[in-house]
C-alpha cells in the first residue's frame, strides 16, 4: 500500500530522533566529573532534529549539444567512409524514371558527393547546358511549392545575449537548475526551494508541497521518484545545534511548463542557472553539499 522508499525515509527520520536520544544518554554518562576532557571534544547533540526538503528543480536540455571541431571532423570522416562504401542505391525501386522527384534527388546527390569528396571527384554529366538549367529551375519551383527553405531557429536565444537568468529558454544545450535569492534572518543567500516537513508527511509529498509554497503553482512539475537524491546538513553554530539540529533532504524535479512565481516576501529573486553559475552564487559549504548532484552537461 505505502510506497516503499518514502516509508523508508519516514522511518529514517524516526531513527534520527532515536539516535539523538541515545546520543544524549551517552552524553549524560560522559558528563560525570571523571571525564571532563571527553566532554569538551564531543559536542552535545540536541534532542530535536528539524527535517526539511529542498527541491532541485531542473530544466533538461532543449537543444542537442553542438559538436566540437574534433567531433565535426570525426563525423564527417565517418560519413565519407559510409558514402564511399554504401551499397548501390536502388533508383528504380524508389523513383519512376524521368520524374521530377528523381531529377531533384540526382541533383541533391551530386551536391552531397561534391561536398564529401571535393569538386574533382565527380565526372561530368552528359546533359546539355539548357537541359541542366531547366532541371534546376524545375526543382527550384518544386521546392517553392513545397514551402522549403524556411530558416531554422537560431541556437542562441535572445535571453542568452541579454543575460536574462530568469528565462527558461536560456542555455538550451545545458541542464538548468532553479535557485532562489532569499532574505532570511537578515542574511541574503541563494538556495534551492526549501520547506519544513510536517509530522506524518511523506518526504516526497512534502517536497512537492514545499515547491508550490515557495514558487507558486503556475507551473507543471514532476518530482522524480519517491526517495531523496541527496542529503545536506547546514552549517550551524553550536548554540543553534543545541537547540535543534537541521537536516535537508534533496529531491530532483523536472519543470515541464509554466514559470516560477515567487510566493512570500522573503524571496527577492529567482534564477535558472547552470552548474558553474550556481558555484559563483552559493556559499562554499552549500556548494560542497550539492555539487555532486548537479549535471556537468
Amino acid at each position: 500500500m505505502f510506497p516503499g522508499p518514502s516509508a523508508k525515509c519516514a522511518r529514517l527520520g524516526h531513527f534520527l530522533f532515536l539516535r539523538s536520544l541515545t546520543t544524549e544518554a551517552t552524553c549524560a554518562v560522559t558528563r560525570t566529573p571523571t571525564l571532563p576532557v571527553k566532554q569538551a571534544t564531543r559536542p552535545q547533540k540536541s534532542d530535536k532534529t528539524s527535517i526539511s526538503t529542498a527541491i532541485v528543480l531542473n530544466r533538461a536540455p532543449i537543444l542537442t549539444r553542438s559538436s566540437t571541431p574534433f567531433e565535426t571532423a570525426y563525423y564527417s570522416y565517418q560519413a565519407r567512409i559510409r558514402r564511399a562504401l554504401h551499397n548501390p542505391f536502388p533508383y528504380d525501386f524508389y523513383f519512376k524514371q524521368g520524374t521530377l522527384i528523381e531529377t531533384r534527388f540526382n541533383l541533391e546527390e551530386r551536391k552531397r558527393e561534391r561536398l564529401a569528396f571535393g569538386p574533382a571527384f565527380l565526372s561530368k554529366e552528359d546533359v546539355s547546358e539548357e537541359k541542366r538549367a531547366a532541371d534546376i529551375a524545375a526543382v527550384e519551383q518544386l521546392a517553392q511549392q513545397e514551402g522549403e527553405g524556411e530558416v531554422l531557429m537560431p541556437r542562441t536565444h535572445p535571453s542568452d545575449t541579454s543575460g536574462d537568468v530568469r528565462s527558461l529558454d536560456r542555455k538550451g544545450q545545458r541542464n538548468l537548475y532553479l535557485l532562489l535569492h532569499v532574505l532570511e534572518n537578515g542574511k541574503e543567500t541563494w538556495r534551492f526551494p526549501l520547506g519544513k516537513v510536517e509530522k506524518g508527511q511523506f518526504l516526497h509529498q512534502a517536497a512537492q508541497k514545499d515547491l508550490y509554497a515557495e514558487c507558486g503553482d503556475e507551473m507543471d512539475t514532476w518530482v522524480v521518484g519517491k526517495a531523496p537524491i541527496g542529503v545536506y546538513k547546514p552549517r550551524q553554530t553550536s548554540a543553534e545545534a543545541q537547540q535543534a539540529s537541521e537536516i535537508v533532504f534533496l529531491f530532483k524535479a523536472h519543470i515541464m511548463a509554466g514559470q516560477v512565481k515567487p510566493q512570500g516576501d522573503h524571496i527577492e529573486d529567482f534564477a535558472w542557472l547552470t552548474k558553474e553559475e550556481i558555484k559563483m552564487r552559493v556559499h562554499s559549504h552549500y556548494w560542497d553539499g550539492i555539487k555532486d548532484i548537479l549535471s556537468d552537461h
Binding site: 533538461a60 536540455p61 549539444r65 570525426y74 565517418q78 560519413a79 559510409r82 562504401l85 541542464n175
Partner: peptide, 19 residues
C-alpha cells in the same frame, strides 16, 4: 580493414545520457 562508426550525433542517445 575499414570499420564505420557513428557518423552524426544521436539526439536520443544524448537525451538518455543527460536526462
Amino acid at each position: 580493414k575499414i570499420v564505420t562508426r557513428e557518423f552524426a550525433p544521436s539526439r536520443l542517445e544524448e537525451h538518455y545520457h543527460t536526462t
